[in-house]
C-alpha cells in the first residue's frame, strides 16, 4: 500500500512541481523509466510468487536503470544511439510482457 502511495505521490509531484531535468540526464530518462518499469513488474511478480526480497528489488531496480542509461550513452557515443535504445526498449518490453503474463496468471488464475 505504501509502495503504491509512493508511486502516486511521485507522479503527482512530477506533474505539479515540474522540476527541471539537467540536459545531461535528459536523453536517458525515457529508457531509465522503462527499465525501472521492468524492475517494478519483476518485483510485483516476485511478490506474487512469494519470493520478494527488498534488497534484490532495490539492486535490480537501480542496476536496470543504470545499465539501460549506460547502453544508451554508449550507443550515442558509437553513433547507433537510436537503434540501440530501440533494442533496449524492445527487450525490456518483452520482459515486461512476460512478467505481466505471470502476474495475470496469479491474479486472475488465467
Amino acid at each position: 500500500m505504501i509502495a503504491v502511495l509512493g508511486l502516486v505521490v511521485g507522479v503527482v509531484a512530477g506533474l505539479l512541481v515540474r522540476p527541471e531535468v539537467p540536459a545531461v540526464v535528459e536523453p536517458y530518462l525515457p529508457i531509465a523509466v522503462v527499465a525501472a518499469l521492468d524492475a517494478v513488474f519483476g518485483g510485483l511478480r516476485a511478490m506474487l510468487d512469494g519470493i520478494f526480497v527488498d534488497k534484490v528489488f532495490v539492486v535490480s531496480f537501480l542496476s536496470n536503470v543504470v545499465v539501460a542509461a549506460l547502453i544508451v550513452f554508449l550507443g550515442d557515443k558509437l553513433g547507433v544511439g537510436a537503434q540501440l535504445s530501440t533494442g533496449v526498449v524492445v527487450v525490456l518490453g518483452i520482459r515486461i510482457f512476460s512478467n505481466a503474463a505471470a502476474i495475470r496468471r496469479h491474479v486472475f488464475r488465467a
Partner: peptide
C-alpha cells in the same frame, strides 16, 4: 497498510519511478 522496511524502500523507488514517468510524459 503496514510500514515495513520493504514497503518503505519500494515506496521510495516507486516515487522515483513516478517522478521520472511524470517528467518524461510532461516533457
Amino acid at each position: 497498510p503496514r510500514i515495513t522496511r520493504a514497503q518503505l524502500i519500494v515506496a521510495v523507488l516507486l516515487f522515483g519511478l513516478g517522478l521520472g514517468l511524470a517528467i518524461q510524459v510532461r516533457s
